[in-house]
Amino acid sequence: MLARRLVLYIVTAWVAITANFLLPRLMPGNPIQTLIGKITGTVTPNEIRAIRLSFGLGFHQGLIAQYFTYLTQLLHGNFGVSITLGAPVSSILRQTVPWTLGLIGLATIFSFAIGTFGGALLGWTRGSRLDALIPTATFFQAVPYFFLATVMLLLFGSDLHWFPVLGAYSQTVTPGWNFSYISSVIRYGELPLIAIVLSSLAGWMLGMRNMMITMIGEDFVLMAVAKGLPRRKVIWHAARNAILPSIANLSLAIGLVVSGALLVELVFNYPGVGDLLLQAVLNEDYPLIQGIFLVITLAVLAANFLADIVYLWLDPRTRTVAAV
């Protein structure tokens, strides 16, 4: 099973890379030529050469040869040069990716844990007063991440001053491994983190609730009750099985969470990939947009693969199938 999934992710990565190569060529109006025309004179000829190379346009070649030039450049880590920032895309990404990875990674873990736990509880106590939470959860699920973030920024940041806002750390501290910097990073990360968790929580919760209700009807749960197991153990029995589809659906969810969370960065001026992407879009900085897209896609695929490994570890049935 794992090998099959790995093949899928490799194919997906290849599709993303190829789309990245083909898109600028298929689009009407020849955006690359326009781009090179626009920047000639503002950047050095060397940089233009690097940009042409990263698009696979280094020499006067046919499409296939261009494609291989492009792939070779990618393998060497050459994503091109950002037009507006004048620096190689790869080095810009190296500065921004850790912020995003930390923020979105932590937020996803939190919201998955809280949402699954809450969903198991909701499913178990179905039909009770707790069901009133469902419409609320549905509402939170439907709110765009960036809108919820904006409202929280206004309420808790600029009105109530509970959290510091805008940026990833205070301007008064010096970055490095010192206590004041790290605590500042944590303080500034709190509100964006809460915003992402609140927006993504409901999805996990509702999915888990439905699975839990389906599981409770299964014979093995009845059996557990009949054996006279304490209630907590029975819930654990059902929840452990209900969680599997949740994890199996991670591939859909991670993409959505990441897409939403990128915009939260933008609202909070968080110096991550999302904020960078907006700048790139506004300035029509194509090499940067493409580089960011590739990095996001590869990160999402890696997260999916991790989820698959966890799934395999949790569900013995998949292991037997893999052994056969």
Binding site: L8, Y9, S251, V258, S259, L262, V281, I289, I292, I296
Partner: peptide, 9 residues
């Protein structure tokens, strides 16, 4: 598996 919104962008 491809994240939709970044691709859209």
């Amino acid at each position: 598996a491809i994240p939709g919104v970044p691709l859209l962008i």
